[in-house]
């Protein structure tokens, strides 16, 4: 009601009068040009800010530990001289600013320090273990994404307008249970059924194709159910929209109605949910790798926290945070490509 339209001759085309655009007036765009480009730039900026925060946080992690982290790492029995020596070798005796400069400078040269427990460079350990974690999470995400859409769409279409209520309740109840079971518990169940009981798959390790099956299933099931439920709910919402009534009034065949008219409108919400799932999957590797004794960075973070191996902790935290940032960025870019309206709606 408050945006004045550009002055037009009275008899010419009518002025916009959508309630959606009425209100507080548009916010200025970052660039005069395409809102999509502005959206992408905004997200890149956000990722850069996030990265800076992550850098600072991972650096200060060691300094935030109450007491003396070096003493904690080495245990109470080690001599004060050894503690001092390690402190020097970690560079913790330098002024804070100098330490931070060294830390960031080291990152640019791929130097993440040396692990206290194994004496190996942290970067080498991570480079060795990262591919495993990446493969585990990407495989699981693909299975979750590919499985969720047909299930969500099919159940929504069959349940539309309260039809087949028993089936609908059954399906959503089942999905709800799958979502409620934490992945580490599911992993233990899978091992007890398929490894101990049926002896179909090995219970631990990584490398053989048969060793991939159970971890991927354990990691993918929950996200698959979650995503399927989002698709289901979104689809039901879209099927209630007036433009679907319009499409119905045209008596379009079901295939056209659901695939061409309804499906494109659930893309934005599904992608956003997909982002949450992907990020959750990345974190979920911590638990799954521990259960299945997989040598990835997930099991590394747990063991490094237990042994208080601070250089290693810093490195893994940093890598995980960057993975999360990349996952978010990928989803944002996909959103900009697949659903340009969402980028406009944000501006």
């Amino acid at each position: 009601m408050t945006i004045p339209p550009a002055p037009t001759p009275i008899t010419a085309a009518p002025t916009p009068s959508t309630p959606a655009t009425a209100g507080r007036g548009e916010r200025p765009r970052l660039l005069g040009g395409s809102p999509r480009l502005a959206f992408v730039l905004r997200r890149l900026l956000r990722a850069a800010v996030s990265l800076a925060i992550v850098l600072v946080a991972s650096f200060f992690l060691v300094h935030l530990v109450p007491g003396d982290p070096v003493r904690a790492a080495l245990g109470p029995t080690v001599s004060p001289e050894a503690v001092e020596a390690l402190r020097r070798s970690l560079g913790l005796d330098l002024p804070l600013g100098q330490q931070f400069a060294n830390y960031v400078g080291g990152l640019f040269t791929g130097d993440l320090g040396v692990s206290v427990s194994s004496q190996r460079p942290v970067a080498a350990t991570l480079a060795e273990r990262l591919p495993t974690t990446l493969m585990l999470s990407v495989l699981s995400f693909l299975i979750a994404a590919v499985g969720a859409f047909p299930i969500g769409v099919a159940t929504a279409v069959s349940a539309r307008g309260g039809r087949r209520r028993a089936v609908d309740l059954g399906v959503s109840g089942f999905l709800g249970i799958l979502i409620a079971i934490p992945n580490f518990l599911l992993a233990v169940l899978l091992i007890s059924i398929f490894s101990v009981g049926l002896q179909a798959f090995p219970p631990a390790g990584w490398g053989q194709p048969s060793q991939v099956v159970l971890p991927v299933i354990a990691l993918a099931i929950g996200p698959l159910a979650y995503l399927a439920r989002i698709v289901h709910v979104e689809m039901l919402r879209v099927l209630d929209e007036p433009y679907i009534t319009t499409a119905r009034s045209k008596r379009l065949p079901g295939r056209v109605l659901y695939l061409r008219h309804a499906l494109p409108n659930i893309v934005a919400a599904s992608l956003t949910a997909g982002g949450v799932v992907l990020v959750g999957l990345v974190a979920g590797t911590v638990l799954i790798e521990t259960v299945f004794v997989i040598p990835g960075i997930g099991s590394t973070i747990v063991s490094s926290i237990t042994t208080k191996d601070y250089p290693l902790i810093q490195g893994v935290v940093l890598v995980y945070a960057v993975l999360v940032l990349v996952a978010n960025l990928v989803i944002d870019l996909a959103l900009a490509v697949l659903d340009p309206r969402s980028t406009i709606a944000e501006a």
């Binding site: 945006i3 004045p4 507080r24 007036g25 548009e26 916010r27 200025p28």
Partner: peptide, 13 residues
């Protein structure tokens, strides 16, 4: 006036 700069719009003039 809503907004700033080039994107500014005069709601009441």
């Amino acid at each position: 006036r809503y907004g700033h700069g080039r994107a500014a719009q005069l709601a009441v003039d």
